[in-house]
């Protein structure tokens, strides 16, 4: 791919001005395909909107669900505004405490996205480093890391996370650790595999012949070439982490009640679903679905485009 060409001819790189580089990116095949891929564009729009809502949401949210002075128990169980007993102040209705569902979703999506993105960054960092080490040096480090990965991969990550969380107890920080513990494996596995095949390529052998130190080879020549796969996995994994977090919170071993994520909002709605109060759980669930769908649409495009091997 383009990156491998770049590191094969490091001299040419210095001559390119930033402007020209931008132009190259703009006219690249990748951008060309992206502009013509409707699902990928829809996905990007959903992600951009979700990020906007998560970052700036508190500025325009009708209510702060954490602020007890803004909540009135008299407003409990109001249906969405288009229904007869609806209240125009609460567009999507209220829950059992009189909290506005829309505000709950806005604040909840902050927790969900924060966890999804942080876990992705942490797993990516740990997994990629271990994968590079494992693939580049081989030997005992490699077999140790890969045995651990093998054992972990043979169990459903959901079950491992559930088990770890029930030992740790609820908490956002604990969720970050538990999800990273199950998330690093896929990064390590993929990066190791690619590093192994890169090691056999001539340009890496050449760097060894000219006597570059190992860390330089790893960071300047191997890492840029495994980066596309890392980006693809990272994108897809964010959605995965958000879903896992939601599920754990739904089961009551995820986020604490004081920091409700989207999953916990759905759980709160489950208890009142049978009495016909559907809006408490339907809307947060729809939001999770939309968010993860957007991420997956973009991830699917990136995978097809950047690394068809990963299918």
């Amino acid at each position: 791919m383009t990156t491998s060409a770049k590191s094969q001819q490091p001299k040419e790189k210095e001559d390119i001005s930033i402007k020209e580089r931008l132009n190259r990116i703009r006219s690249s095949e990748f951008i060309y395909n992206y502009k013509r891929n409707i699902p990928a564009i829809i996905g990007s729009i959903i992600i951009a909107l979700a990020l906007f809502v998560a970052i700036f949401g508190p500025l325009f949210a009708p209510q702060n669900p954490y602020d007890l002075t803004e909540i009135d128990l008299a407003d409990a169980y109001k249906p969405p505004f288009w229904q007869e007993e609806g209240d125009s102040r609460f567009i999507l209705g209220t829950d059992d405490q009189g909290r506005d569902i829309l505000s709950g979703i806005i604040y909840g999506s902050r927790v969900s996205l924060f966890i999804g993105l942080t876990v992705m960054l942490m797993s990516c960092l740990i997994g990629t480093s271990l994968g590079l080490l494992s693939g580049y040096y081989g030997g005992k480090i490699d077999s140790l890391i890969m045995r651990i990965a093998d054992i972990q991969l043979s169990f459903p990550s959901m079950l491992i996370a559930l088990f770890i969380m029930s030992a740790f107890g609820r908490g956002v920080d604990k969720l970050l650790i538990a999800l990273t513990l199950v998330g690093w494996v896929i990064f390590a596995r993929t990066v190791r595999g690619e590093t192994l095949s890169l090691k056999k390529k001539e340009f890496i052998e050449a760097t060894k012949v000219i006597g570059l130190p190992n860390y330089k080879i790893i960071f300047k020549h191997v890492l840029p070439n495994v980066f596309t796969s890392v980006i693809v996995i990272s994108t897809i994994k964010v959605g995965d982490f958000i879903l896992t977090e939601a599920t754990l919170s739904f089961l009551g071993v995820g986020v604490p009640i004081t920091e409700p994520s989207l999953g916990l909002l759905v759980k709160n709605g489950f208890d009142v679903l049978f009495s016909g109060l559907w809006w408490v759980s339907v809307f947060p669930g729809l939001y999770i679905m939309m968010l993860v769908f957007g991420i997956n649409l973009l991830g699917d495009f990136l995978r097809d485009e950047l690394n068809p091997k990963l299918k």
């Binding site: 939601a246 089961l251 759905v266 679903l273 049978f274 759980s281 339907v282 993860v292 769908f293 997956n296």
Partner: peptide, 21 residues
């Protein structure tokens, strides 16, 4: 893709709501 993006616990709840309630 939509199928992978669905939180299964929520789908279960929706099925209960639609088909049972």
């Amino acid at each position: 893709i939509l199928g992978i993006s669905l939180p299964s616990f929520w789908v279960g709840m929706m099925m209960i709501y639609i088909f049972s309630v």
